[in-house]
Amino acid sequence: MSRLSLTVTVLAMSAALAGCAHKAPKELPPEPGTPIGQESSSSDMTNAAVPGSQADFVASVASDTIYFDTDQYNVDSADGATLQSQAQWLARYPDKRITVEGHADERGTRDYNIALGERRANAAKNYLVSLGVAAARIGTVSYGKERPVALGSDEASWARNRRAVTVTIQ
């Protein structure tokens, strides 16, 4: 008899729990502190970049990346225009710091590509400093060929990997 009562009890509890399940609401309530009538949809919040953030930086400048020719680290006129737009953004946010990442394609030794990536990062840094950005706000790092953005052993992939990328920090 106790086995039967245990089975009935388990079935009754299962039915009770199933009846408690509810559907998620179609619309979530506004965030705490949001004035009534000024709620924003979640799609608005995902598209808005916080001023001074990396997303704002990427949306505001010509590009966060400059590219180099094979075995080169000089900043050409197109790269200069990109760095000019980055310097203008940095002037709007004087407390922001950045790191310039230097990269190379897969050809060459690891040591050679680390040194080349460092020269590329420093070339971008020096150009930004020449535009008035304080050197103390800019750090550099070289990844050499260790972080390719394009996987492939062809000229198009190599060209995309020979780059310096500016990343905001702080």
Rank of each mutant, 00 (worst) to 15 (best):
R120L: 10
Q84G: 07
S142I: 01
I138M: 08
D76Q: 11
Y67D: 06
D76A: 06
P148S: 02
S85Y: 01
Y67K: 11
Q72K: 14
E101N: 11
T82L: 08
R163L: 01
A115Y: 06
L116Y: 08
A104L: 09
A150E: 07
K125D: 01
R97K: 15
Y93H: 15
Y143D: 04
W158Q: 12
R107M: 00
I114S: 08
T70P: 00
D79Y: 05
I98N: 06
A135H: 05
Q88W: 03
D105T: 02
V75M: 06
V165W: 10
A135Q: 11
A104H: 07
Y127C: 05
V149W: 03
A124N: 08
V133N: 06
V141H: 00
S153C: 11
W158E: 12
N113Q: 15
A115W: 02
L83G: 05
Q86Y: 04
A91T: 14
A123Q: 06
T140I: 13
T65W: 02
D79E: 13
S142A: 11
A150F: 00
G117Y: 09
G132L: 07
T109R: 08
V141S: 06
A159Y: 00
G117H: 10
W158Y: 14
D154Q: 06
D105S: 05
E155G: 10
P94F: 02
L116W: 10
I114A: 10
R137N: 04
L151F: 13
S77K: 13
E101S: 09
V75W: 08
K96W: 03
V167P: 03
R92H: 08
D69G: 14
T109C: 07
R107G: 03
Y112A: 15
Y67M: 09
F68T: 09
S77Q: 14
D95P: 09
T82M: 08
T109S: 15
L131A: 09
D95E: 15
A91Q: 13
V141K: 10
A124E: 04
R97I: 08
R137E: 00
T140V: 15
A124F: 01
T82K: 15
Q72H: 12
D154E: 09
E106F: 11
W158T: 04
D105E: 12
T70Q: 13
A78K: 11
Y112R: 12
T140W: 03
A123G: 04
V75P: 04
G144V: 01
R137W: 03
S142Q: 05
A136T: 15
S157I: 06
V133Q: 00
V149I: 14
A124V: 10
N126G: 10
A87E: 02
A124Q: 08
N122T: 14
G117Q: 09
V133H: 02
T65K: 13
V165Y: 11
A134C: 00
S77E: 14
R120F: 07
G102E: 03
S130V: 07
G139K: 13
I114R: 12
E155F: 12
G152W: 11
R160A: 15
R110F: 12
I66N: 05
Q88A: 14
W89T: 06
A87N: 07
E101D: 12
G152D: 07
S77P: 01
P94D: 03
